[in-house]
């Protein structure tokens, strides 16, 4: 499994996203660039210019027509993938840490930072997935997080709920229509920030990664913890692989916490766990900084990781990956075949 190294960024990576078909990769970094890449060969499709600050987040709509990005310049922007034009800019009082389209691409949520007297909020915007359409200026909904600021958020199946992960380690479920808080549950260790929240393909459950060195698989409708994956390093990201029942975790000692930087001490590896049995299955080395984001190819053929070291590594799974099954799984497959 020789990875493709995407060396287009000059600073730490913040987020990577595959489009639905798994043939394009979008990456954003602190160097104020958004890059689009071909997943199969690592060729750069282009860049999107306009942001005036570190870009924290990016998402692509389900039809691969537009992308949304959120940045430290306090804006969310919409871009035409094909032409690279900026279609719309929404301004906010503080930086935007996370954006995500809902399942049919009609709504976009943004998580804004708590700073300068402004509380952290989750905003919802109406989006028209058409490069020629006029975008609506107004926020449809604003959820204010007065307890502990939200660090990550996402849309559940049917755009029914907005799920947010908080700085204090708790997870909240909001009604996506009214913005009412349904409930807030302490999931991770107190005051270990939740660093990532990624969905299973059908958005009925999701995985959270936290600084408490664990990742958890949680249901969307009642926030029940299904599985816990324990690692030995603070985690920055976690993703669920489609097709095979694995999860990939990424993290590593933050640069500020490492006294002597060595690849061994930093634990800059992507870790594979079995989604159902919670066992660690393997690790992939290569980065020389903490992994800031891991993303799984929606077609299940590979995954990509972005690191503090400024590189994106795109991995295509090889035969061993597909062949690997637990005896009980094989048993089950045989049963199903009959």
């Amino acid at each position: 499994m020789r990875p493709i190294l995407l060396a287009g960024h000059e600073r730490a990576l913040a987020q990577i996203k595959y489009n639905v078909d798994g043939d394009l990769i979008f990456s954003v970094s602190k160097d104020q660039q958004i890059c689009a890449w071909f997943a199969h060969n690592g060729e750069r499709l282009g860049t999107y210019h306009g942001h005036q600050g570190a870009i924290w987040t990016v998402d692509v709509d389900p039809t691969s027509t537009i992308i949304a990005s959120g940045s430290a310049d306090n804006t969310i922007r919409l871009w035409d993938i094909k032409s690279g034009k900026c279609l719309k800019t929404w301004e906010f009082p503080t930086a935007v840490k996370r954006v995500e389209f809902n399942e049919d691409g009609t709504k976009l949520l943004g998580v804004t930072e708590k700073r300068m007297g402004h509380l952290g909020t989750i905003v919802v915007l109406d989006v028209v997935v058409d490069v020629n359409a006029e975008q609506n200026d107004e926020k449809v909904l604003t959820i204010v997080c007065d307890e502990s600021k939200a660090t990550v958020a996402g849309w559940s199946y049917l755009s029914k709920y907005i799920i947010a992960g908080h700085e204090d380690g708790s997870v909240s479920q909001y009604d996506a229509k009214t913005g009412d808080l349904n409930f807030n549950i302490a999931i991770h260790e107190l005051d270990s920030a939740i660093t990532d929240l990624q969905w299973a393909p059908d958005r009925t459950y999701f995985i959270t990664a936290s600084k408490d060195k664990t990742a958890k698989l949680i249901t969307a409708d009642d926030l029940r913890v299904l599985k816990t994956y324990v690692s030995d390093t603070p985690l920055n990201s976690a993703t669920i692989t489609p097709k095979k029942d694995f999860v990939v975790l990424g993290g590593g000692q933050a640069a500020m916490d490492v006294t002597r930087t060595s690849a061994r001490q930093g634990k800059f590896e992507a870790r594979f766990y079995h989604k159902i049995f919670e066992d660690e299955i393997g690790r992939v080395r290569g980065h020389f900084g903490p992994l800031n984001y891991v993303a799984a190819d929606p077609t299940g053929k590979g995954y990509a990781s972005g690191s503090e070291d400024g590189y994106v590594r795109v991995h295509q799974f090889d035969k061993g990956y597909y062949d690997f099954v637990y005896e009980v799984e094989r048993e089950r497959q045989r049963e199903l075949a009959i």
């Binding site: 009925t204 459950y205 249901t219 299904l226 159902i276 049995f277 637990y326 009980v328 048993e331 089950r332």
Partner: peptide, 16 residues
């Protein structure tokens, strides 16, 4: 493991 797998598959079926 068998128990975990059954549990998981059942939950998936119900949810779906």
């Amino acid at each position: 493991r068998r128990r975990l797998l059954d549990e998981w598959l059942q939950w998936r079926r119900e949810t779906e």
